[in-house]
């Protein structure tokens, strides 16, 4: 598979440069797809940051069970999206739930990328036994279906934010390592790398300053896709009852708690579903648009 990775990598690589290339950021506006994706993500980011001010009710306060959308609370305020089986306002829970997702998904993705990129750089640049050892560990982790790995880890060490981040890091850094390694293999024989080595630059500098910026395009696209995937993962864990402990709102958990009532009160499951789908769609659209922009570079 690594050979295939290198083959793909070679086609999308920009010409050599030093320092990060941020030309594509300025050109995000040129891609309609990327702009829509970015706007959706920004919308949820604003919602998450302003949650205490924009949510009409406290997220965990039982007020009036099973109210449908548009019904008024005793104090006159409106349940715009209705309430759940315990009488908690669904809109407020979705708003507060965005915080859970937008804290843990980027955190877990960042951890995976730090480990994955470090391992990939070492394996692809140093080769030899380091490459062999890291590649075998990667094969081993990738032999477990991701969700099985999550279930084993969470059921053994308990459900908490930190454990979810650790589990996601363990499960996704091998794939990032493979991608980085493929990109590095395609770059390490290029003239600018040889020139840096002749100048006597230390190995870490060649890896981080010379090679990494030139491999950044495909990595950034992968990061966007992976963010969407981690949002799905956190939702799935909540849905299976392995997510963050109640009562704090978590979109996947909201769906699981109320799906029993879907026959009579479809609004309870429908709105959290739409929230997850829209955020994932945002990341997928952004990744799709960026892929084209990065290739243009």
């Amino acid at each position: 598979m690594s050979a295939a990775g290198a083959e793909i990598a070679a086609e999308v690589l920009p010409p050599p440069s030093r320092g990060l290339r941020f030309g594509w950021i300025r050109r995000i506006g040129h891609s309609k797809v990327a702009t829509i994706g970015l706007l959706i993500i920004l919308f949820w980011a604003v919602v998450a940051v302003t949650a205490p001010w924009i949510s009409p009710f406290p997220p965990n306060l039982p007020i009036r069970p099973m109210a449908s959308a548009g019904v008024r609370a005793p104090n006159g305020a409106v349940f715009w999206l209705g309430t759940d089986h315990l009488g908690r306002d669904i809109l407020s829970r979705i708003i507060w739930g965005s915080r859970t997702v937008l804290v843990y998904a980027p955190l877990a993705t960042a951890c995976s990328f730090v480990i994955g990129i470090t391992a990939g750089l070492l394996a692809g640049f140093k080769r030899g036994w380091i490459d062999e050892a890291l590649s075998r560990i990667t094969d081993l982790v990738l032999a477990f279906p991701a969700l099985v790995l999550y279930i084993i880890i969470i059921s053994k060490f308990g459900a908490s934010g930190i454990n979810i981040v650790l589990a996601v890091t363990l499960a996704s850094s091998p794939a990032i390592m493979r991608l980085t390694r493929g990109l590095v293999l395609a770059l390490r024989t290029r003239a600018f790398v040889a020139a840096a080595q002749l100048r006597g630059e230390p190995a870490w500098r060649v890896m981080v300053v010379e090679i990494l910026p030139n491999a950044s395009g495909p990595l950034i696209v992968d990061a966007c896709l992976r963010l969407g995937y981690v949002v799905i993962t956190i939702g799935t864990l909540g849905f299976l009852g392995l997510g963050l402990p109640p009562p704090d709102p978590d979109w996947g958990g909201m769906i699981n708690d109320t799906r029993k009532f879907a026959l009579v009160f479809p609004h309870m499951v429908l709105f959290p579903c739409l929230a997850v789908c829209s955020l994932v769609l945002g990341f997928n659209l952004l990744a799709d648009g960026l892929r084209e922009l990065v290739t243009e570079d």
């Binding site: 969407g228 799905i232 939702g235 799935t236 849905f239 996947g252 769906i255 699981n256 799906r259 879907a262 026959l263 479809p266 499951v269 429908l270 579903c273 997850v276 789908c277 829209s278 994932v280 769609l281 997928n284 659209l285 799709d288």
Partner: peptide
């Protein structure tokens, strides 16, 4: 394709149940 891949399985199960089971009563839930 991009829209359907943005609907994770736990959401798609709920959504298609809402259509085919609860609204249309075509299929068992």
């Amino acid at each position: 394709c991009i829209v359907t891949t943005s609907i994770p399985p736990f959401a798609s199960t709920v959504l298609i149940s809402a259509i085919f089971v609860f609204s249309l009563h075509w299929l068992p839930g």
